[in-house]
């Protein structure tokens, strides 16, 4: 076991997989000489050379479209978007091309692009360096949307993504990049996409979270425990496809659910989860399903702390459904 940060986990796995599979090519704005805006790709250019690590023009649509064309040819591109907030010019290539290529070609082509996207608030980034755009992507058949919350999952999920044949949007919670180091196994493990992880077991309330909200929910669960409420925290890890079995099994046990995410509330991924529980778990539910979220506003620079759901906001919802 080695102790790694989430960022180190991604860096090391990229490096190992590039050694293992010479089809993998990293590309993006400043991923080469500069090592990426957060340093995830540091040293890769020196090790693998300019044929495998490409500094690209600053055009996200161009970057993702280029990656699609490379993937069709048999290369395995790993484009990096500097901030999720800048991905929108590439949205068309993601939705119209990357996600639909296998479908529209009747299986003639697949498009295994692994799109790395640092996302989320909490780093003082304001409106254009803090967004959580997962709901847009989760509305697109053909995409896999995954959000690791720690080094071990990031390693295992990135490995699965790089070894699979679907396009993956890997949302990396930049707030957690360097926050904590955790032990990771040395072996060649994978974390299957579409599998959630029970972070903490409990019997009274289920909290469904992902990415940067996982440690927040853990803290809230600790606060709840001090009030005598046993909270089960589930890290969904993959949003699309959802690990429905793990979620439903937990609700069958607790009968109460809170969903917490940074994104705005209206039409959010949390809304999808709430609807799914209404459809499939109504007989188990003892209380309304509550969503804890950011507000339905852009993220204002000076009020980031007020905007982002913290442990207290999550705890308040846990308490509310527990006492319903």
């Amino acid at each position: 076991m080695t102790e790694l940060s989430l960022l180190q986990g991604i860096h090391r796995t990229l490096r190992q997989e590039m050694q293992r599979d010479e089809r993998i090519v990293v590309l993006g704005d400043d991923v080469g000489r500069w090592g990426g805006v957060f340093g995830v790709t540091e040293g890769l250019l020196e090790e693998f050379g300019p044929q495998r690590v490409l500094d690209m023009p600053m055009a996200e649509g161009g970057l993702i479209g280029t990656a699609v064309g490379m993937a069709l040819y048999g290369v395995r591109p790993v484009p990096e978007i500097q901030f999720a907030d800048f991905i929108y010019p590439g949205f068309d290539q993601m939705v119209s091309e990357m996600a639909k290529m296998r479908y529209r070609s009747g299986g003639d082509y697949s498009c295994p692009v692994v799109l790395r996207v640092p996302y989320g608030g909490g780093v003082g980034g304001g409106m254009y360096q803090s967004q959580s755009p997962e709901a847009y992507f989760c509305h697109t058949p053909g995409l896999v949307v995954a959000v690791p919350s720690n080094a071990q999952d990031a390693i295992g999920m990135l490995r699965s993504s790089l070894r699979g044949n679907d396009p993956v949007v890997l949302l990396e919670p930049k707030r957690l990049y360097r926050r904590a180091h955790s032990p990771v196994p040395e072996d060649d493990f994978e974390v299957p996409l579409g599998s959630a992880r029970i972070v903490r077991e409990g019997t009274d309330v289920t909290v469904l979270v992902y990415g940067a909200m996982v440690p927040v929910a853990e803290e809230a669960a600790q606060m709840a425990a001090e009030s005598g409420i046993q909270t089960e925290v589930i890290d969904l890890r993959t949003l699309l496809p959802l690990d429905i079995a793990t979620v439903l099994a937990s609700i069958a046990k607790t009968g109460r659910a809170v969903i917490a995410a940074e994104a705005p509330k209206f039409c959010s991924y949390a809304a999808e989860l709430a609807a799914t529980l209404a459809e499939r778990a109504i007989v188990h539910l003892e209380a309304p399903v509550l969503r804890v979220s950011g507000f339905d506003t852009p993220i204002p620079f000076a009020f980031e702390d007020e905007y982002l759901p913290g442990p207290r906001r999550v705890y308040a919802a846990i308490e509310q459904v527990a006492n319903f």
Binding site: L54, G61, G65, M70, L72, Y73, V75, E97, Y109
Partner: peptide, 25 residues
Amino acid sequence: YVSVSGVLANHVQQAAGTALAMRLR
């Protein structure tokens, strides 16, 4: 021969990507 994209000009960028992949190979 790649299936025509339903969206204007997206394929031009992909063609550049395929050309880049050819170059790398």
